[in-house]
Computed example of a mutant assay.
Amino acid sequence: MIATKKREFNELMENIKIYKSIFLLGCSECAALCGTGGEPEVKAMKETLKSKGKEVTGTFVAKSGCQVLGTKAELKPFKDAIDKADCIMVMSCGAGTQTAVELYENKPVFPANDSLFLANMTRLQDFDERCSLCGKCVLDKTGGICPITRCAKGLVNGPCGGSKDGFCEVSKDTPCAWQQIYSRLMKLNQLHTLRELSQPKTKPVRPRRLMREDLKSKKEPTKKV
């Protein structure tokens, strides 16, 4: 999931200061879990904007804001409300905001949240960064623990030497990722996999795109005349 946090309200008001009417769009998945764009948050934002003299022409919480076609279909009943709005405020991650940008190219779109990282929800409302979406996974060599993300320095060839008592020198509250990797591999009798890590990671070329080849290669059924 994508972890998000609410932007400062004054910043939001600065973005929409020249607009009188707004349509609010939330997301029932990641943003809802983070408390930044579910039904309660969208409702609260509506009331806050109204108290500041803004007109909210409508609100909707998409099933999954990053799904362009799905969100497009869900928003069809709200066409009039969106047309009436001067701008759209999206209470989801950056992907959800850009869904609205793609669907409404003639309408200003503003994010209500800051996107932080790809997260694991370790317990209720606790989110930990575990993956950096680097495009070349090394988890099969590191016992399922990502050094690129969980090591403060992103080292892929072992610890830096600055850790103490199993904790990172950057923060005494952060476990040393390489200590965790070593301990897990030793427990699994797989320390030999560390010998396969030697090359530094390169940053992926952005923007990236993925197309499912299994669906792309399927031939459409021949239509009967």
Rank of each mutant, 00 (worst) to 15 (best):
M1A: 13
I2Q: 01
A3D: 03
K5G: 10
K6A: 13
K6N: 13
K6Y: 05
F9V: 11
L12Q: 02
L12F: 04
L12I: 15
L12D: 05
L12G: 01
E14K: 14
N15M: 14
I16P: 07
I16V: 14
F23P: 03
F23C: 04
L24V: 11
L25N: 03
G26P: 03
C27T: 05
S28Y: 00
E29F: 05
G35W: 02
G35I: 10
G35Y: 05
P40N: 02
V42R: 02
K43N: 06
K43M: 11
S51W: 00
G53T: 06
K54S: 00
E55Q: 10
T59P: 00
F60P: 01
S64E: 03
G65A: 15
C66E: 02
L69H: 12
G70N: 12
G70W: 08
E74M: 11
K79E: 15
D80T: 13
D80Q: 15
I82S: 01
D83T: 13
D83M: 03
S92F: 01
C93M: 09
C93G: 05
A95Q: 04
A95W: 02
T97L: 10
Q98R: 06
T99E: 00
L103F: 05
E105Q: 15
E105G: 10
P108K: 05
P108W: 04
A112N: 07
D114Y: 10
D114S: 14
A119P: 00
M121L: 06
T122Y: 01
R123Y: 10
L124K: 10
E129T: 14
R130Q: 06
R130G: 01
S132E: 09
G135I: 07
V138L: 15
V138Q: 06
L139P: 06
D140Y: 07
D140C: 07
T142C: 05
G143I: 11
G144S: 13
I145M: 04
I145P: 00
C146A: 06
I148T: 08
T149D: 04
T149H: 02
R150W: 00
C151N: 02
C151D: 04
C151V: 09
C151S: 10
A152H: 10
G154I: 09
V156Q: 06
V156M: 11
G158C: 07
C160Y: 05
C160N: 06
C160V: 09
G161C: 04
G162Y: 03
S163A: 11
K164N: 11
F167W: 05
F167I: 08
C168F: 02
V170D: 09
K172A: 15
D173E: 15
D173C: 03
D173P: 01
D173L: 12
C176P: 14
W178T: 05
I181R: 10
Y182S: 03
S183N: 15
R184W: 08
K187E: 15
L191H: 05
H192L: 08
R195A: 14
R195L: 13
E196L: 12
Q199D: 11
V205D: 13
V205M: 13
R208M: 14
M211A: 12
M211T: 15
D214I: 11
L215K: 10
S217R: 14
S217E: 14
E220F: 14
K223D: 09
K223A: 13
